[in-house]
Design a protein around this nucleic acid. Structure first.
Lengths: 208, 208
DNA sequence: ATCTTAACGGAACCGAAGGTCCATTAAGAT
DNA sequence: ATCTTAATGGACCTTCGGTTCCGTTAAGAT
């Protein structure tokens, strides 16, 4: 978070005594930030409001996170740690479909959906936030890449297939819809995304 | 833009005398807004700064567009009118690749790239802006859907293929990379996106 | 148990984003 | 050419996001 270029590494606030109160404050603030983001979007994210929701001093929020983007970056770092384990249904199509359904459920969830769009918006405004977002997706993608590797091992896909790229291909159309519109985000869209990724993978498009 | 629910439709500013000065001001402001967006992103979009760049009174900008999101919405409406005509190379693969390369060129352009990310960020903060963005992409997608329809007519793709969905499938992975990272936006990525869409389309994934 | 000081939080402060007022300019109708 | 008034833009004002100051609380070391 705070990689100050200061003389002899001045420790960032919250790093020397990370236990007890400090941790409690961080949790409360990140939860409040998520709520605020889901409700008002990134554009309407006000640090003072977050402080109020978290029942924490306004000063504290400004001192530790400074800017809305910084706060979102930390929220993302926190989200990346709570990775959901993937399923393993034994066939590529089933696994990719399960992944697509999971993404769909996330993006259409009344809290998670707005939260994700907000977080993406935040990432476009600040490089550090963008890096945090990239790291988050790297974790998620790598988690699901396993089922593609398994499919390669089973001989369902050509050797040398880029597993991560296949997983991203499943998510991409759903995020595209979320952001640029053009059709509803429903089960049909999810299944189509999964089927498309599977078809392309079988055709060897993702062989590096 | 201004669909006021006022008694007996009070005309929005700029609608009664749209010629001469008013048009000149709009052009200058939209150009300035695009520059500002490309440079500082949506988060750093300041209406006063836009006014300064456009050499226009601050009051004018606030009166006509009110909010950053409103300004971006108008900018999008303007962008939607300047549609670039598609190519027609005679084969599905070539046409989709050309489309992918065009999207790539746009997203990696030093001005257009940041502009597009900013505009997408703006759309997440305001419903009206989101609608404008959707309309923009609807125009773009429909423009290129023609070459998919042609491929169906030539028998390259199964009848009943949803042309728009194929076109979106080409763009989606590129936008996904732009926003969530995970790999460079290069020619290889563009070609892969086109190839994947073509493979999935041939497999009948986009038959409605 | 005691001590040091990291971290918190209330109050007061500051600057600029955003809005109001009104005189000036120029579309567009006659 | 003349007139009406839509639209502009400068000066001024108000609100509030963000910061600073400093006293209070409680981590973590002894």
């Amino acid at each position: 978070m705070d990689a100050e270029g200061e003389p002899d590494d001045v420790p960032a606030t919250g790093m020397v005594r990370p236990g007890g109160r400090t941790a409690r404050v961080r949790d409360a603030v990140l939860r409040a930030a998520g709520d605020a983001l889901a409700e008002h979007g990134f554009g309407g994210l006000d640090l003072a409001d977050v402080a109020r929701r978290a029942e924490v001093g306004k000063t504290t929020v400004y001192r530790r996170w400074s800017t809305p983007a910084g706060l979102v970056a930390d929220l993302l770092a926190d989200m990346a740690e709570q990775s959901v384990p993937r399923t393993d249904l034994g066939s590529l199509d089933a696994d990719l479909a399960a992944n697509a359904r999971l993404v769909l459920r996330t993006l259409t969830d009344p809290r998670q959906g707005p939260l994700f769009t907000s977080v993406i918006a935040a990432a476009t405004c600040d490089v550090r936030t963008a890096e945090a977002l990239h790291r988050f997706y790297e974790v998620r993608v790598r988690e699901w890449a396993g089922c593609v590797d398994a499919a390669v091992a089973r001989g369902e896909l050509p050797a040398g297939t880029d597993a991560c790229e296949v997983v991203r291909a499943v998510s991409a159309p759903l995020y595209y819809r979320l952001l640029t519109g053009g059709g509803a985000l429903d089960a049909a869209a999810a299944d189509r995304a999964a089927a498309a990724a599977a078809a392309a993978a079988r055709a060897g498009v993702y062989v590096s």
